[in-house]
């Protein structure tokens, strides 16, 4: 009855995980995980691609967080530590702009 969770891999602005790039906050906000756009989040200056995570389907996480955001301050209050981010590819860095 249930297939595997649907992950959205359509990449309107495709970037190979190997091609690290520098994101501004505005650029990062476009990767909100909705409508087939990849889901990127930032933590301590690194940008992670969480598109393949079941827990980030449609760019939302636990009803509270949205992709396209810098979650550095939020993660301090999360019930998990930052080690979980090691499961996801780093696709770039976040500039202070």
């Amino acid at each position: 009855m249930f297939g595997p969770p649907q992950c959205h891999w359509a990449r309107p602005h495709a970037h190979s995980p190997m091609q690290k790039r520098r994101f501004t906050k505005k650029e990062l906000s476009r990767y909100d995980g909705m409508d087939g756009v990849p889901a990127f989040i930032a933590y301590k200056g690194r940008v992670y691609d969480v598109s393949r995570s079941f827990l980030w389907l449609n760019g939302r996480h636990q009803a509270v967080h949205a992709a396209g955001d810098d979650l550095t301050s939020s993660l301090d209050e999360a019930p998990h530590d930052a080690d979980l981010l090691k499961r996801y590819p780093v696709v770039g860095t976040l500039s202070g702009d």
């Binding site: 595997p4 969770p5 649907q6 827990l55 389907l57």
Partner: peptide, 13 residues
Amino acid sequence: DMKVFHDLSACPP
């Protein structure tokens, strides 16, 4: 929809 319910689970399968 049960399929919708499945996919919004707080934990992976």
